[in-house]
Design a protein around this nucleic acid. Structure first.
Lengths: 228, 228
DNA sequence: CAGTTGACTCGTACAATGTACGATGCGATG
DNA sequence: CATCGCATCGTACATTGTACGAGTCAACTG
């Protein structure tokens, strides 16, 4: 008889406690699924991730995934959170130079996302996963030791987060839509007529993204921690 | 005989030159389609927009839409751009107080998007539509008259844009995912254990979003236009 | 006026995709 | 061996975007 899942609500465990070390690695596991999903997303972008395709890569049937995962949404959530894990050293963060520490945290954050540009388009729709919270916690800790009052901490954290998100999403968008941007550049003559300031600022060309990012961050930090 | 569209490539015009004023309003038009799409998006969010549903609301057959629009993507693009049109007065912008002008531009921008929270999740994937470019142009013009050097204009515009995008997307995300956030709040006790700083900063509660937005903006502007 | 054209509408059909359901395999335990 | 629970997977279906081609109607042509 099938081990039916008691009819009504019973969600599967979604986690095994200990994989029973004697047995060989099970063919499927959450870890493998998530890792492969990230691969697929890197290779083909958000629309490239189909359950069947993912299963193919894993050498399994499509429906097998659903034992480990509730639905496709959860695959997205897990892939996103996995990519956002902080893997840096904690040395940087405990540096006495808090300004450098903040820079490190936020640039690492941005870099993590730009390594997987799909994350930038996924993030806006998702709740805060634990790795995001972890990074926010880290940031808050550093700001705290930098002398930010508890009352200002909320605002300080969100300001920085907002800035990093915006910069990263914009940047990733340019990474993703090369053609659009190329088209945009070729359209530049046109544009300059309608949008002279944009044309003069070469807003769609020559972008020193990293430099702009740093500069804006400096400004924000100057405001947030008025010392220095 | 049907007026077949010459076989190979022929994209439909997508615009009628003049609707022949004598005839009654055609049952379908790009304008009506876009307006209704925005309604639907407001009511049901991004996933709520289906071609059939949109057609139902318009009292037409689903496939009729495709005469006016190449595909669903284009509906998204048009709805987004439509929502981002600047409808404010030009007085504000020509104000001698450039700082106030910048604030007005950026707050209006943010407000436009928050009125249609789906726009925040759509924007990161789309190329820059003409209404976005229009707003960037506006912003650049004000900054220019505020005394920002041409060489710094690019960085200044992007910094501000990035910040506004990030703040708006984050905010819209909280608007959209009330349940998640509620869950997050109820989880707060839990959270405080793992993330003490976040707990102390009450990062997921009590957010004075508008205040945080303004403050960060002040900081950025202080940096960008060091005068004052 | 009959015929023709072209703008516009729409019913049908199909392919792609997420996933519900139930069968099946398998290792461990009694 | 029988049983059970974890894990896998084939089949089937509903939903959705959209290709295709037929149908409608007003304006224009002769």
């Amino acid at each position: 008889m099938a081990a039916k899942r008691v009819g009504t609500q019973d969600k599967r465990p979604h986690r095994k406690a200990a994989p029973v070390p004697s047995a060989q690695e099970p063919r499927l596991s959450l870890e493998r699924i998530v890792a492969t999903a990230v691969e697929l997303l890197d290779a083909e972008g958000v629309e490239g991730l189909k359950m069947r395709r993912l299963a193919d890569r894993l050498g399994s049937g499509a429906m097998s995934l659903y034992w480990h995962v509730a639905n496709k949404e959860e695959v997205f959530d897990l892939a996103l959170d996995s990519v956002l894990e902080y893997r840096g050293s904690s040395q940087m963060i405990e540096s006495p130079d808090w300004r450098q520490a903040v820079f490190h945290i936020l640039e690492d954050w941005r870099a993590s996302m730009l390594r997987h540009p799909w994350s930038a388009s996924l993030l806006p729709r998702r709740a805060l996963g634990s790795n995001i919270l972890g990074r926010l916690e880290l940031l808050g800790r550093v700001l705290s030791t930098a002398g930010v009052e508890e009352a200002d901490l909320n605002g300080a954290i969100w300001s920085l987060w907002n800035y990093v998100m915006g910069a990263t999403i914009t940047r990733a968008n340019f990474v993703l839509s090369d053609e659009d941007m190329l088209a945009g550049q070729q359209r530049l003559a046109h544009l300059s007529a309608e949008y002279p300031t944009i044309g003069r600022a070469r807003l769609l060309l020559d972008n020193d993204w990293d430099g702009v990012f740093r500069k804006g961050l400096e400004f924000l930090l100057d405001g947030i921690v008025p010392s220095r």
